[in-house]
Amino acid sequence: MSAKTTNQKAWLLVAPVVVLVAFNAVIPLMTVVNYSVQETFGDNLFFFEGMKWFEEVLSSERFHDSLLRQLQFTFIILAIEVPLGVAIALAMPRRGFWASVCLVLMAMPLLIPWNVVGAMWNIFALPDIGLLGKTLNAMGFDYNFTRQPFSAWATLIAMDVWHWTSLVVLLSYAGLSSIPDAYYQAARIDGASAWAVFRYIQLPKLKHVLTIAVLLRFMDSFNIYTEPFVLTGGGPGNSTTLLSLDLVKIALGQFDLGPAAAMSLIYFLIILLFSWIFYTVMTRGEDR
């Protein structure tokens, strides 16, 4: 990689992007900041409240609960999707007709609107009319995701694994196909075991794409809203109310703008912090 030249005029090339994104990011963000420090009684009457909402949100049990559920959810899906995705990519045909077939079919779930994913899993898992629900009950499992928190969680996780594992597969596949055949031939001549090939040839190549995969999956699973909203609506009870479901409930359901805005900012800061860590790790040793 050749070194980049310093050129301040490059800002002109970046300007349109900055203007468009800033318009969409800075103005709404400032609106949220504004709400987070004020109390409103309707009629556009606002009173300055300082840090009150932040203190209230940070000490509320409700926020702790949904944050905990969110972390649990993110941790579980990462623990399933990343190893599963790598395993599938390793077993996939590397090139040719069947590789294309696999790629196209596997990418399908990624292109379905998120509420359709939720609705699809809803009718797939319903115990009375769904294939999954009916089969599980016929096999003797007591399964009803609209009533039992455990079933609801299992369904939610199955849905996310269904929806997003392909992302990890595609990333790993891209990483694996960039390994030259000569490496494998050399390994064969040396009589390397399958494990050694994975550990010393494939894994190092995967490191970079897997960081991207973890980063994307982390961000998106923290932002997940539509799919659980359509599938379970956060229920039964509050058992699957993840962070953003709770947020929308407070902001649009109860119209408590202050606490909702404070919660948004805390929520955003959490994602920002984690993403900054991932980003630093990801770009370490790179040119930029």
């Binding site: 994104v21 932002n223 902001a251 948004s264 920002l272």
Partner: peptide, 15 residues
Amino acid sequence: LLTNRMAPAAVFALP
């Protein structure tokens, strides 16, 4: 720029 890819849509809906 990347942080905007990370921003939860739920946060921005009302603004």
